[in-house]
Simulated scan of single mutants.
Amino acid sequence: MSHTTKNAAGKVAIVTGGSRGIGRDTVLRLAARGVRTIFTFRSNRAEADAVVALTREAGAPGIALALDTGVASSFDGFVARASEALATMGADRFDFLVNNAGISSTASFTEGTEHELDAQFAVHFKGIFLLTQKLLPLIRDGGRIVNISSGLARFAFPNRAVYGSMKAAVEALTRYMALELGPRRISVNVVAPGPIATDFSGGIVRDNPQVNKAVADQTALGRVGLAEDVGPVIAGLLSDEFGWVNAQRIEVAGGIHI
Protein backbone atom coordinates (compact mmCIF):
# COMPACT_ATOMS: atom_id res chain seq x y z
CA MET A 1 0.00 0.00 0.00
CA SER A 2 2.88 2.35 -0.71
CA HIS A 3 2.11 3.80 -4.13
CA THR A 4 0.28 7.07 -4.68
CA THR A 5 -2.44 6.95 -7.31
CA LYS A 6 -2.32 9.64 -9.97
CA ASN A 7 -4.26 12.77 -9.00
CA ALA A 8 -5.19 11.32 -5.59
CA ALA A 9 -2.55 13.10 -3.52
CA GLY A 10 -3.88 16.20 -1.81
CA LYS A 11 -7.50 15.14 -1.96
CA VAL A 12 -9.66 14.73 1.13
CA ALA A 13 -12.24 12.07 2.03
CA ILE A 14 -14.83 11.85 4.77
CA VAL A 15 -15.39 8.27 5.92
CA THR A 16 -18.01 7.41 8.53
CA GLY A 17 -17.24 4.54 10.86
CA GLY A 18 -13.54 4.73 10.01
CA SER A 19 -11.97 3.38 13.20
CA ARG A 20 -12.83 -0.31 12.74
CA GLY A 21 -13.36 -3.03 10.18
CA ILE A 22 -14.06 -2.06 6.58
CA GLY A 23 -14.03 1.65 7.38
CA ARG A 24 -10.58 1.41 8.96
CA ASP A 25 -9.17 -0.47 6.00
CA THR A 26 -10.68 2.09 3.64
CA VAL A 27 -9.08 4.98 5.54
CA LEU A 28 -5.68 3.28 5.42
CA ARG A 29 -6.00 2.40 1.72
CA LEU A 30 -6.84 6.02 0.96
CA ALA A 31 -3.91 7.24 3.05
CA ALA A 32 -1.60 4.97 1.04
CA ARG A 33 -2.88 6.73 -2.10
CA GLY A 34 -2.14 10.16 -0.65
CA VAL A 35 -5.75 10.93 0.31
CA ARG A 36 -6.22 12.60 3.67
CA THR A 37 -9.29 11.59 5.65
CA ILE A 38 -11.68 12.98 8.17
CA PHE A 39 -13.19 9.84 9.63
CA THR A 40 -15.78 9.30 12.30
CA PHE A 41 -15.97 6.98 15.27
CA ARG A 42 -18.85 6.49 17.66
CA SER A 43 -17.25 6.00 21.09
CA ASN A 44 -13.79 4.39 21.14
CA ARG A 45 -11.30 7.25 20.98
CA ALA A 46 -8.31 4.94 21.51
CA GLU A 47 -9.18 2.92 18.38
CA ALA A 48 -9.59 6.12 16.41
CA ASP A 49 -6.28 7.54 17.64
CA ALA A 50 -4.53 4.34 16.56
CA VAL A 51 -5.88 4.81 13.02
CA VAL A 52 -4.79 8.46 13.02
CA ALA A 53 -1.27 7.33 13.90
CA LEU A 54 -1.26 4.87 10.99
CA THR A 55 -2.44 7.52 8.53
CA ARG A 56 0.35 9.78 9.72
CA GLU A 57 2.86 7.02 9.05
CA ALA A 58 1.43 6.67 5.53
CA GLY A 59 2.07 10.35 4.89
CA ALA A 60 -1.56 11.44 4.53
CA PRO A 61 -2.65 12.35 8.07
CA GLY A 62 -6.24 11.76 9.12
CA ILE A 63 -8.47 13.48 11.65
CA ALA A 64 -10.93 11.55 13.83
CA LEU A 65 -14.23 13.12 14.82
CA ALA A 66 -16.83 11.57 17.11
CA LEU A 67 -20.25 11.06 15.51
CA ASP A 68 -23.26 8.83 16.05
CA THR A 69 -24.81 8.64 12.58
CA GLY A 70 -28.08 7.56 14.16
CA VAL A 71 -28.58 10.99 15.77
CA ALA A 72 -29.56 13.36 12.97
CA SER A 73 -29.79 16.34 15.33
CA SER A 74 -26.00 16.19 15.70
CA PHE A 75 -25.29 16.57 11.98
CA ASP A 76 -25.16 20.39 11.86
CA GLY A 77 -22.55 20.34 14.62
CA PHE A 78 -20.59 17.67 12.80
CA VAL A 79 -20.57 19.64 9.54
CA ALA A 80 -19.20 22.63 11.44
CA ARG A 81 -16.45 20.48 12.99
CA ALA A 82 -15.70 18.94 9.60
CA SER A 83 -15.31 22.45 8.15
CA GLU A 84 -12.84 23.27 10.90
CA ALA A 85 -10.95 20.04 10.25
CA LEU A 86 -10.75 20.86 6.55
CA ALA A 87 -9.33 24.27 7.40
CA THR A 88 -6.54 22.65 9.42
CA MET A 89 -5.74 20.64 6.29
CA GLY A 90 -5.61 23.81 4.22
CA ALA A 91 -8.82 22.94 2.38
CA ASP A 92 -12.31 24.38 2.23
CA ARG A 93 -13.92 21.43 0.42
CA PHE A 94 -13.60 17.65 0.37
CA ASP A 95 -13.59 15.27 -2.58
CA PHE A 96 -14.91 11.89 -1.45
CA LEU A 97 -17.60 10.65 0.94
CA VAL A 98 -17.86 7.05 2.13
CA ASN A 99 -21.08 6.34 4.07
CA ASN A 100 -19.81 3.27 5.90
CA ALA A 101 -21.00 3.52 9.50
CA GLY A 102 -23.49 0.82 10.44
CA ILE A 103 -24.96 -1.25 13.25
CA SER A 104 -25.90 -4.90 13.19
CA SER A 105 -29.32 -6.46 13.61
CA THR A 106 -30.34 -10.08 14.02
CA ALA A 107 -34.06 -9.34 13.95
CA SER A 108 -36.29 -11.62 11.90
CA PHE A 109 -39.47 -10.43 10.21
CA THR A 110 -41.71 -12.21 12.72
CA GLU A 111 -39.82 -10.91 15.75
CA GLY A 112 -38.65 -7.49 14.56
CA THR A 113 -39.81 -4.66 16.81
CA GLU A 114 -40.59 -1.02 16.20
CA HIS A 115 -37.51 -0.12 18.25
CA GLU A 116 -35.30 -2.32 16.06
CA LEU A 117 -36.76 -0.83 12.88
CA ASP A 118 -36.28 2.72 14.14
CA ALA A 119 -32.67 2.08 15.18
CA GLN A 120 -31.74 0.50 11.85
CA PHE A 121 -33.57 3.17 9.85
CA ALA A 122 -31.88 5.97 11.80
CA VAL A 123 -28.36 4.75 10.97
CA HIS A 124 -28.65 2.99 7.63
CA PHE A 125 -31.11 5.16 5.74
CA LYS A 126 -32.01 8.38 7.53
CA GLY A 127 -28.40 8.89 8.59
CA ILE A 128 -26.98 8.45 5.10
CA PHE A 129 -29.75 10.55 3.54
CA LEU A 130 -29.53 13.52 5.90
CA LEU A 131 -25.78 13.53 6.58
CA THR A 132 -24.97 13.49 2.86
CA GLN A 133 -27.54 16.22 2.33
CA LYS A 134 -25.88 18.36 5.02
CA LEU A 135 -22.44 17.79 3.53
CA LEU A 136 -23.38 18.72 -0.04
CA PRO A 137 -22.18 22.35 0.29
CA LEU A 138 -18.74 21.05 1.28
CA ILE A 139 -18.19 18.36 -1.36
CA ARG A 140 -16.50 19.49 -4.55
CA ASP A 141 -18.24 19.34 -7.91
CA GLY A 142 -16.89 16.23 -9.62
CA GLY A 143 -16.61 14.45 -6.26
CA ARG A 144 -17.43 10.84 -5.49
CA ILE A 145 -19.74 9.16 -2.99
CA VAL A 146 -19.72 5.48 -2.04
CA ASN A 147 -22.51 4.05 0.09
CA ILE A 148 -22.15 0.68 1.81
CA SER A 149 -24.83 -1.95 1.43
CA SER A 150 -24.65 -5.71 2.01
CA GLY A 151 -24.98 -8.97 0.13
CA LEU A 152 -28.09 -9.40 2.30
CA ALA A 153 -29.87 -6.89 0.07
CA ARG A 154 -29.62 -9.44 -2.75
CA PHE A 155 -30.12 -12.77 -0.94
CA ALA A 156 -32.17 -13.61 2.13
CA PHE A 157 -30.64 -15.12 5.26
CA PRO A 158 -32.34 -16.06 8.54
CA ASN A 159 -32.63 -13.31 11.16
CA ARG A 160 -31.56 -10.50 8.87
CA ALA A 161 -34.95 -9.21 7.68
CA VAL A 162 -34.60 -5.73 9.14
CA TYR A 163 -30.92 -5.23 8.32
CA GLY A 164 -31.15 -6.61 4.78
CA SER A 165 -34.21 -4.54 3.98
CA MET A 166 -32.55 -1.32 5.16
CA LYS A 167 -29.52 -2.07 3.00
CA ALA A 168 -31.80 -2.63 0.00
CA ALA A 169 -33.19 0.84 0.66
CA VAL A 170 -29.64 2.22 0.58
CA GLU A 171 -29.18 0.71 -2.88
CA ALA A 172 -32.31 2.43 -4.19
CA LEU A 173 -31.26 5.70 -2.55
CA THR A 174 -27.87 5.46 -4.28
CA ARG A 175 -29.52 5.57 -7.71
CA TYR A 176 -31.59 8.60 -6.79
CA MET A 177 -28.53 10.36 -5.39
CA ALA A 178 -26.61 9.64 -8.60
CA LEU A 179 -29.45 11.05 -10.68
CA GLU A 180 -29.90 14.24 -8.69
CA LEU A 181 -26.19 14.95 -8.15
CA GLY A 182 -25.34 14.32 -11.80
CA PRO A 183 -25.50 18.03 -12.73
CA ARG A 184 -22.64 18.59 -10.25
CA ARG A 185 -20.71 15.67 -11.82
CA ILE A 186 -20.79 13.82 -8.49
CA SER A 187 -20.88 10.05 -8.99
CA VAL A 188 -22.60 7.82 -6.46
CA ASN A 189 -22.06 4.07 -6.23
CA VAL A 190 -22.78 1.37 -3.69
CA VAL A 191 -20.48 -1.40 -2.47
CA ALA A 192 -22.15 -4.52 -1.06
CA PRO A 193 -19.80 -6.69 1.03
CA GLY A 194 -20.62 -10.29 1.78
CA PRO A 195 -20.01 -11.77 5.25
CA ILE A 196 -16.78 -10.26 6.58
CA ALA A 197 -14.55 -11.50 9.39
CA THR A 198 -14.58 -8.41 11.61
CA ASP A 199 -16.06 -7.57 15.02
CA PHE A 200 -19.33 -6.56 13.30
CA SER A 201 -22.40 -8.39 14.60
CA GLY A 202 -20.47 -9.55 17.63
CA GLY A 203 -17.70 -10.99 15.48
CA ILE A 204 -19.86 -13.98 14.54
CA VAL A 205 -18.31 -14.56 11.10
CA ARG A 206 -14.79 -14.16 12.44
CA ASP A 207 -15.10 -15.99 15.75
CA ASN A 208 -17.72 -18.71 15.28
CA PRO A 209 -16.09 -21.69 13.46
CA GLN A 210 -19.44 -23.13 12.37
CA VAL A 211 -20.62 -19.85 10.86
CA ASN A 212 -17.22 -19.25 9.28
CA LYS A 213 -17.26 -22.68 7.62
CA ALA A 214 -20.88 -22.35 6.50
CA VAL A 215 -20.12 -19.03 4.80
CA ALA A 216 -16.95 -20.39 3.19
CA ASP A 217 -18.84 -23.43 1.90
CA GLN A 218 -21.40 -21.18 0.18
CA THR A 219 -18.77 -18.92 -1.39
CA ALA A 220 -17.28 -19.74 -4.79
CA LEU A 221 -13.78 -18.67 -3.73
CA GLY A 222 -13.99 -20.87 -0.66
CA ARG A 223 -13.44 -18.54 2.28
CA VAL A 224 -15.07 -15.70 4.22
CA GLY A 225 -14.27 -12.12 3.33
CA LEU A 226 -11.82 -9.86 5.12
CA ALA A 227 -11.89 -6.10 5.61
CA GLU A 228 -8.82 -5.89 3.39
CA ASP A 229 -10.85 -7.44 0.56
CA VAL A 230 -13.28 -4.53 0.62
CA GLY A 231 -11.24 -1.44 1.49
CA PRO A 232 -9.26 -1.50 -1.78
CA VAL A 233 -12.48 -1.71 -3.82
CA ILE A 234 -13.91 1.36 -2.10
CA ALA A 235 -10.65 3.27 -2.49
CA GLY A 236 -10.47 2.14 -6.11
CA LEU A 237 -13.96 3.42 -6.88
CA LEU A 238 -12.81 6.84 -5.69
CA SER A 239 -9.88 6.87 -8.11
CA ASP A 240 -9.77 8.54 -11.51
CA GLU A 241 -9.75 5.14 -13.20
CA PHE A 242 -13.36 4.57 -12.14
CA GLY A 243 -14.63 8.07 -12.88
CA TRP A 244 -17.20 6.89 -15.45
CA VAL A 245 -18.75 4.30 -13.13
CA ASN A 246 -21.95 5.73 -11.68
CA ALA A 247 -25.13 4.48 -9.98
CA GLN A 248 -23.72 0.94 -9.83
CA ARG A 249 -23.87 -1.80 -7.22
CA ILE A 250 -20.59 -3.67 -6.75
CA GLU A 251 -20.86 -6.80 -4.61
CA VAL A 252 -17.56 -7.75 -2.94
CA ALA A 253 -18.35 -11.20 -1.65
CA GLY A 254 -16.17 -13.79 -3.34
CA GLY A 255 -19.18 -15.22 -5.18
CA ILE A 256 -21.50 -16.13 -2.31
CA HIS A 257 -24.92 -17.53 -3.26
CA ILE A 258 -24.25 -17.12 -6.98
Rank of each mutant, 00 (worst) to 15 (best):
F96M: 07
A87N: 11
V191E: 01
I103W: 01
V215D: 10
V252M: 11
A32V: 00
D92I: 02
L97G: 04
G182D: 05
F155P: 01
A72Y: 00
P158V: 09
Q120V: 06
V27E: 04
S74C: 03
W244P: 08
R56T: 15
L136E: 11
D95C: 00
T5C: 08
G225I: 09
E228A: 13
P158F: 11
N246V: 15
I148E: 05
R33H: 08
G202L: 06
L238K: 11
G23E: 01
E114L: 07
G255D: 09
R175G: 15
G18A: 08
Q120A: 12
M89K: 10
A168P: 00
V79R: 11
I204W: 05
R223P: 10
L67D: 01
R160S: 13
D240C: 07
T219I: 11
E114S: 04
A220N: 11
I145E: 14
A107C: 03
S43Y: 00
E111T: 05
Q218G: 07
A13G: 12
F200S: 05
L54F: 03
E111H: 02
E171A: 04
V190F: 01
A235M: 08
A31K: 02
A8F: 14
V211Y: 04
S201D: 14
D229G: 15
A101L: 01
T88P: 02
I204G: 01
N7S: 15
V15G: 08
A214R: 10
G112R: 00
N147I: 12
E251G: 13
N44L: 00
N159F: 12
G70E: 03
L238R: 09
S2N: 11
N159D: 15
L135W: 11
